[in-house]
Design a protein around this nucleic acid. Sequence first.
DNA 1: CGTGAGGGGAAACGAA
DNA 2: ATTCGTTTCCCCTCAC
Length: 290
Amino acid sequence: MAGFPVSLTDLDKFAVEDGIVYQPVSTIVSEIIRDLSPMMQQDGFTFPYTEEEVVTSSEQDSFVELQVLSADSNPMWGCQNKAEPPQFRPVYSPDGYSSDQDVCIPTENTFEAQSRGYRPDEYDSDGMTASGSESPTSSRSGSTSSDEDEDYVPLEISDDEEEAEDDDPSLKWSCRYNPSGFHTRVSPSVSKRRHGQPILWKFLHEMLMDPRYSKHIYWTNQSKGMFKFSSEHKEEIARLWGEKKGNRCVMTYQKMARSLRNYSNQKRYLVKVKRKLQYQFLTDQHMARA
DNA sequence: CGTGAGGGGAAACGAA
DNA sequence: ATTCGTTTCCCCTCAC
C-alpha cells in the first residue's frame, strides 16, 4: 500500500530514482495550474498556489491526482471559494477543467511519467517512509486542521494494480471532467468508445453544478457526492437528458432511473442511496475494480 | 386500493 | 461483427 498524498518534489525525486526520463511533475503541475487558474477564478475560486500547498493522491498506476491545500481552505477540497463558506471545495485534478477533455495529460513525456506511477517501493501502509523524504502526513498537516479531515480518505492501491503495472504501455487511463473529485478515471476502452457522446452521470453532474437547475437536482451532501432529484422537476431533468442524447422518444425519469440503476448495480460512477430520489457519486476508492 | 418510487430482466438501439 | 452504454418495455414489490 502506498501512502498518499505525497508532495510533488518527492514524486519528482522518486521518479528520478526509478531512472525515468521525464518532465518533472512539479513543472507539469505548474503548467496545469497556470492553465486552470483563469477558469477557476471565473468560477469564483482563488488558487493560493505554492509548492507546499499542492500534493497528489492516486490509486491508479497511470494517474496522479492533484489537490491544492492551503491554510484557509478546506483540507479535503483545497480551494477557497470567495462567495461561499468552505464546506465544499473541488479537487482540481489533471483531468483539465474541461468537459470535453478525455485525455488530460499535456505532453507525451508527462504521460509516460504518469504511466510509470509514483509509488516508490519504500512506501508502505504507514505512509511514506523513503529515506530523506517528507512524510505525506506532515505535508498535509502543515496546512490543514485535523477536525476538517474526517471526510478525507486516502486512496489505496491494491496488489492487483501493482501487478498490472506496465502490462501494456498502450493501455493508459484517461480521465474526464470532474470538478468535484468523484470518479476521475475512465478505462481506455470506455474513453474511446464514448468519446463525444453524452454520458449520463456526467450530464447529471453538469446539472448539479448549474445553478439554473438547482430546483431540479441538488446536492444533499456534496462532499460525499450525494444528490437528489426534485420530485417536482425530475421529469424535466430526464427530458433534458433525452434531448441531449437526441432520443426519438421522450426520456422519462423512470427510464433514466433504469440507467442509473445499471450504474448502481455495476458499482460504476454512482449508486442508489436508500432515500427517495437520491443517489451518490462513487469515489475512486469505492469504484469497482474492473 | 391507488399512487409513486424502487428494482431488475431482457431485448433493442446506436455510436465507435 | 462486436462492444458498450444506454434505452425501452414490462412486471414486480414496497411504502404511504
